[in-house]
Design a protein around this nucleic acid. Structure first.
Length: 304
DNA sequence: TGCGGGACACAACGACGCAG
DNA sequence: CTGCGTCGTTGTGTCCCGCA
């Protein structure tokens, strides 16, 4: 940036009185808008909190609050529905394995190239196949590590917050390999994979990962296969698993709609804020007669 | 050979501290 | 107070070693 050119910019230069009026106007208006944005933001936080609570409720107590309960036998878990069983993850999966991380190119794989997944591919709400690195042409892909639809991927090493992030592979467009910091879990026919995914992402599983995580480096905690295999899992009958997974998916979609709306309101408020500043300092709006608004006018801002 | 995990590198970014 | 260099943190990615 050429600083002298910047300093030589011509700027609007109103009389001092008007400068003061503009500053007073903007101070007040932007504070109002900022407060509104903060309110919307905290609403978003609350929604996220509610979702976490809903999921852990659903995978420990089910959807019907009137069913009889029994002691789960696990002290930190409390009671579960009487018709559910307590099991370990190892009894509802066919296989768990980690992959292979050869040295790769720094960009993601093209259409016809093999890619090796990066751990970040499981951090979002959905599996992200673009988080991969292209396998060099001179390396033979180890095809046994190719990921398939139905695989559940879990990160085995990361910070505490991201350790154990999980995603379900639904469809495959590309040739992708499992990396050595991801576990692949193949669910057995005893469990619905969407339900299992919900469980693995719930605070119930999270608690167990954090309890068992090892590693001296704070930014690189590890969980072993045994931790995964020994996860305590309250298990409803299969049809109920499917209906819980469906309900949670439905709630998620519903929540997403609300969230998107709130985000767009925040975005519009931010735009309004900057337009207001531009218009005030360029004289497009006359604020000389501006006085602190009444409550009714504040409400108009909230809806404008 | 597979598994678990440590050591180290790194990029991006923000916080910190210090001289002028 | 400003500008700038450095340091620390975060979130990885790579390599490799010890053990069973």
């Amino acid at each position: 940036m050429d600083s002298s050119a910047y300093l030589n910019e011509r700027i609007a230069y109103p009389p001092l009185d008007e400068q003061k009026a503009i500053a007073r106007f903007l101070d007040h208006k932007t504070a109002q808008i900022d407060a509104l944005i903060a309110k919307k933001q905290s609403l978003l936080d609350k929604l996220a909190e509610q979702r976490t609570a809903l999921i852990s409720q659903a995978v420990t107590k089910g959807l019907d609050p009137s069913v009889p309960l029994k002691d789960s036998g696990v002290d930190w878990l409390g009671e579960i529905p009487a018709h559910w069983m307590m099991t370990k993850l190892r009894f509802v999966i066919n296989d768990i394995e980690q992959g292979w991380s050869p040295q790769c190119h720094n960009q993601s794989a093209d259409e016809d190239q093999w890619g090796v997944l990066k751990v970040g591919c499981v951090n979002g709400e959905e599996f992200n196949p673009n988080e991969n690195k292209a396998l060099p042409e001179d390396l033979e892909p180890r095809q046994r590590y190719e990921i398939k639809p139905g695989d559940i991927l879990v990160s085995r090493a990361n910070t505490k917050e991201l350790l154990g992030s999980a995603a379900l592979v639904k469809t495959i467009q590309k040739k992708l390999l499992l990396c050595d910091k991801l576990y692949r879990i193949k669910p057995s026919e005893k469990v619905d994979s969407s339900y299992l995914l919900r469980f693995l992402r719930s605070s119930i599983a999270r608690y167990q990962y954090e309890k068992d995580a090892t590693g001296t480096s704070g930014s690189m905690q590890n969980i072993g296969q045994d931790t995964i295999k020994n996860l305590s899992l309250p298990l409803p009958p299969l049809p109920e698993q499917i209906s819980i997974a469906k309900t949670l998916q439905h709630e998620y979609t519903k929540g997403l709609v609300v969230e998107t709306k709130i985000k767009s309101v925040i975005h519009r408020l931010q735009e309004y804020r900057s337009t207001l500043i531009t218009n005030a300092v360029t004289g497009k709006i006359d604020v000389r007669g501006y006085c602190i608004p009444t409550t009714t006018e504040q409400r108009e801002v909230a809806h404008g």
